[in-house]
Design a binder for these strands. Structure first.
Lengths: 402, 402
DNA sequence: AGATATAATTCAGACTATAATCTAATTTAG
DNA sequence: CTAAATTAGATTATAGTCTGAATTATATCT
């Protein structure tokens, strides 16, 4: 392949991606619509469309209504033109999805994580499952353009290495991209789950109408993904988005990261669990929702929450308040169009987002108040895997000049 | 003029700007150097260079050393090709600079702000001074390509309006860009001072070697400018960078913004002054450095600081600590390559940056620690006006595809 | 002095977007 | 029902940009 230069190839590629992205967003459209929509001459569009149609990337999707002239021929992405595999792996399980060019789900698998949690075992299981899934779906495997992988961070996106993920102690430096690429012979891209959740919501969820997004992933820890001008912002060492580690009380409790009073140490689901444990101890361990002989963990908390256990609700609402406090600084610094909040806790208890939003709304810089938009994630647990698919599809629909 | 489209003009413009930017950064270079440097064919470069040379944008700057072949002809930006005016206006004064294409200072003026502080008076004074300055410098005024203006925020960069700046109560909605453009008939761009300080340090100061920068302006308030991938990030409502309003103590003192425990309420120079006032009262107002009959203001504090007054030093060092705390969250969220700290207080007391840096360094996520880079601003009070010049020069040296 | 290396020029060619003109199909006015 | 107007699309010629090979110019190295 040639190197990326400021040449005619680039120009063509630019216009191609602009056309494809326009079609993706607008559905079946005519050449004239496209020319109008992306400000290119009709002829340039016509030529490119004909080419894309001949290759099979596009297909004719009937004719549209005339508004006083020849009926327009409508073009659409050919769903069978390309396929993408998305993978979401965690310490507990592995999720796989096969997605077509229309971003429709063709097949999916859920597999428990290998008991030994060794990287090699993960790779083996993934490779097998992918091969099976592709075979079962009877896909022409030359049409598989890539695999997007969501993994627990930190990740060096450039080298495709996962670096000492806290939840997978046996993983040290794992060249995940390289290993999967070798095993399956398909291009692989790896990105951390919080970032891909953000990307997923941008492509398929509540972020589709905006370009500057902060995604907050409130799980065991609190992570985040930042999208600026429609593009993931990764930061200097691929570490951007660690919004769990903003200080909201510099005299607060110690956090795993070494700092004191981090948002994560006070409002993550682990912090909530700890808090409940502590209060139970103070109360002498008496509670209907938390039998003395059972462990207090996130599952138990979720269960108690479903019964609206008073203690649980109170602790979570306190966490919601603190989340709101943490968001203030982030909103004032970034001035995003939308803040999207996902993760197990807010999903189980939607009021969490409401509370955080109302706290943030009363305390954020007045000018930002009116247009402040704090919303729950739309895709739930699928955000990350949807983002993994988007990570690959992005290559076709957007051109990054760098 | 034609509309901007993904066409050949765009391609040419792209390569032109890449070439000019390369020359700006690398100094006198040969065509071969450029071709190598920006990954374009020698021929494409040769043609563009010849063109730019003929128009007078470039000039031949002698010949270089041969490394075993024909001596290269070295090209350089022609300093006399273009001129830019930069303006920095505040409630106290107006600074003007005339800068050539080499970003060398040709002329400058300092004028006190008009006593009535009315927008119209500002415009009148500025217009007159600019005309004078240009006339005195004997510049061909067709070569003046634009005026960059640094003003107190908030500013709608798009419309060029300054919106209710706190320090200029008589200014409500002032269409500064429009007014100056009318008065002087030269393209004008307006941007808030913190953002331009960031841009100034990126172009001419300590930020020149990096692309992801947080600039902290610690003055009466605490503002900031964010540069991502070399480009100013403005946020949704042009409000990004209000890093003075991150919460570092959610039970802290009330801030002007309505929130509690903002960094600005605890570490800005106003906060420092207030704190000193308070402590003096508690001590019965006795102090060598703060005579009872004089007002305690920032000037007095600076003076006391120069005598290393104990109370003053202590309060400022506390503020430095809090600044460090505030930076933690920002660094963990953005993972910038460099944090640049400017403003009157850190400039007067460089140890402030050291203290903040060391606090942040011990508390930031361990992975970020090694490459953490917190440095004082290099341009001092000139950051903003330098940025104002860069704001205009940017149009020539970078191409924004949007 | 001759071989080799580097820089720049010349000229022909490939590719992309544009512009003007034409064909086809359909609606709308009368 | 017919003709004019409208819209979509095709054809052809053209201009502009980058590319590539061959050539010229100039230095260094042996």
């Amino acid at each position: 392949m040639q190197q990326l230069r400021g040449n005619l190839h680039l120009l063509k590629k630019l216009n191609q991606t602009r056309i494809l992205d326009f079609i993706r967003k607008q559905g079946p459209v005519s050449k004239a619509d496209i020319a109008e929509g992306i400000q290119l001459t009709f002829m340039a569009v016509s030529k490119l469309i004909n080419e894309l149609n001949e290759i099979g990337i596009l297909r004719v999707q009937g004719v549209g209504k005339s508004s006083g002239g020849r009926k327009p021929i409508l073009y659409d992405l050919n769903p069978d033109a390309l396929y993408v595999i998305a993978i979401d792996l965690s310490s507990e399980d592995i999720k796989l999805e096969l997605v077509n060019f229309h971003t429709e789900l063709i097949a999916q698998r859920h597999i428990p994580a290998p008991p030994d949690k060794e990287p090699a075992s993960y790779i083996k299981i993934i490779a097998e499952s992918v091969r099976q899934m592709v075979a079962d779906a009877k896909i022409d495997d030359t049409k598989l353009i890539g695999i997007g992988v969501s993994a627990p961070g930190p990740i060096n996106t450039h080298s495709g290495e996962v670096l000492f993920p806290p939840n997978l102690p046996k993983w040290e430096i794992v060249p995940l991209q390289h290993l999967l690429q070798e095993a399956l012979n398909i291009p692989v891209k790896v990105e951390k789950n919080a970032n891909l959740s953000a990307l997923g919501e941008k492509w398929f969820g509540v972020g589709s109408d905006v370009d500057n997004i902060i995604y907050v992933l409130l799980g065991d820890g609190i992570g985040g993904g930042i999208i600026i001008d429609g593009v993931l912002y990764k930061g200097n060492q691929f570490g951007a988005g660690e919004i769990g580690h903003v200080t909201i009380d510099h005299n607060g409790p110690r956090c795993n990261c070494g700092n004191y009073g981090c948002l994560e140490a006070m409002a993550s689901s682990i912090a909530v669990v700890k808090r409940i444990q502590k209060e139970l101890l103070l109360n002498g361990g008496k509670s209907h929702s938390y039998p003395a002989n059972e462990q207090v963990n996130i599952t138990a908390v979720m269960k108690a929450l479903s019964h609206q256990d008073e203690l649980t609700v109170r602790v979570i609402e306190e966490a919601s308040y603190l989340l709101g406090i943490g968001l203030i600084g982030i909103i004032n610094s970034f001035n995003p169009q939308k803040v999207i909040i996902g993760g197990n806790l807010p999903q189980a208890y939607p009021k969490m987002v409401e509370i955080a939003a109302s706290v943030a709304k009363t305390r954020v810089i007045p000018v930002f108040r009116d247009k402040l938009n704090i919303v729950p994630a739309a895709l739930g647990e699928r955000s990350a895997i949807a983002g993994a698919a988007a990570l690959i599809l992005e290559e076709i629909f957007t051109l990054h000049l760098t």
